[in-house]
Each structure stands twice: as structure tokens, then as C-alpha cells.
Amino acid sequence: MIQPAAIYVLWLREMLKFVRAKSRMIGAIAMPVFMLVFLGLGFRRVEFPGLPPEIGYLQYLVPGIVGMTLLFTGAFTGMSVLMDRQFGFLKEVMVTPASRVSIVLGRIAGGASTSIIQALMMLFLSVFLGFALPSFPMIAASVVVMMFISVIFICIGLILSSFMKDIHGFNTMTNFIIFPIFLLSGALFPVRNLPAAIQIFSYLDPLTYGVDALRGILIGYAAFNIWIDLLILFISSTALVCASGYCFKKGEVL
């Protein structure tokens, strides 16, 4: 069922296109960079209730922006299936002997690699604003969390794209699904500062746990127990991989 060759081909394709499309790369990280620079500098002196005073807002914000980068790039790579459908390339992949599961896994592998590269770029760029990088093993550990986050949102993108037949629903999806996921996650401010009714949605948002785990690893401060974060991330990513495989199998190709 799982063909490593097919997964490798799709991964390689994604990497090649990523390296070639410099404008796409710049476009993808432009927004997180702006958010980081303006929010980070603008709210530099803000003190949130419930945060230890030794953690400045910039330190607090960077893991959130890394999570945001993973959310947006992940969801967009997932939805790039729509582009392939538009350009007919999806059909080409679907008539090769590659199993549907391998096709989904190949996409996830390619998308996760490019998302993580962009997230790491954000992390290193933030150093110029004064972010204090943790030790190398911590950065390596954060890559594992990044992988979970990107897999989750690539799968959500894949699932959404199996319901959408063309590219026109794209903006609606961004506005009504991707942005709420971002804003609810506590990437910008502690979730506990939200009204209780809205907090419920935050706790249903996988990015909440992703950002929290990143904070725990990168700045040594987490709102929840980091092992619980990791467990939730692991369970939701596994479930979503299966769900996207199923949707891709069931969905009409044309």
C-alpha cells in the first residue's frame, strides 16, 4: 500500500519547486515577519497578566509566530492540491500506479519539509529583533513539535481541498478557518485572557497545544504540561493523516 518511491518523488517535486520559487518563499514568510516585527516591537513593553515578568512580549510572541508560519504554509500546501487540480497535474499523479495513501503521504512529507524550513527561518530571523535562542538540543526538539503542527494543518488543507472543487473558495477558507485557528491559539496572547465561552474553542484548536509546546521548549514557559501538549498533537496528527487519506481516496479526482 505504501510505496516509498512515490512518496520520495512527490517530496522531491515539492522541494525542487520550493527552491525555485523564491517569490513564493518570500511571500509565505512576509506576513509572519511583519507580524513579528510590528507586534513584537509595538507591544514590547506590554505586560500580560498571568505571565512571569522575566518573559518579555517578544520572547512570548516568537513561538506563536513560528506556529502561525507552520499553520499558514501547512494549510496552503495542503490546499495546493487545488492548484494541481486546476493545472491538471493531479490527474497525472492519479493515473500512475502510486497508491492514494502514498500520494497523500508524499504530499505531507513535502509540505512538512518546506513548512519547517520556513518556520526555522522565522526563528532565526527573530534573533535580529532580540530573541534569545535556546540551546541546540532544544531547537532540535522544537523541530519535532513543528513537524506535528505542520502535519496537522497540511492534513486539514488536504481535507478542505477534497471538498472544494476549485480555487475560488480559497479566500473564504482562509478567512473563516485558518484565521480563527490562528487567533484562538494563543499565538499572540495568553488564551486565559479570552472570555470563558471563547476559551472553549481555543481548547479545541490543535494549534493551541502546538504553540504551547513550542513555548515550553523554546522559552521554557508553557501554560499546560508539555507532555499533554505532545500527546494531543500526536493523537490529532495521526487521526488527521488517516482522515485525509480517506478523503483523498473517496473524493472525486476531476
Partner: peptide, 30 residues
């Protein structure tokens, strides 16, 4: 799928890749 080849009515190439890469990736799938 293993025993067929198809040339679609609508274009189905990856325009972001070279001709050789399109062929190579296709062959790798087999």
C-alpha cells in the same frame, strides 16, 4: 494503472518543472 498510459485532453504537466523532470518523476512513479 500499471498497464496503461494516458495523454489527457487538457494539459497535465507540472509547469514549474523542466521537461526532463516531468519525465523523470513520472518514470520514478513506475
Amino acid at each position: 494503472r500499471r498497464s496503461i498510459g494516458i495523454i489527457f485532453q487538457d494539459p497535465s504537466l507540472d509547469i514549474g518543472l523542466t521537461g526532463r523532470e516531468n519525465l523523470d518523476f513520472h518514470a520514478m512513479m513506475y
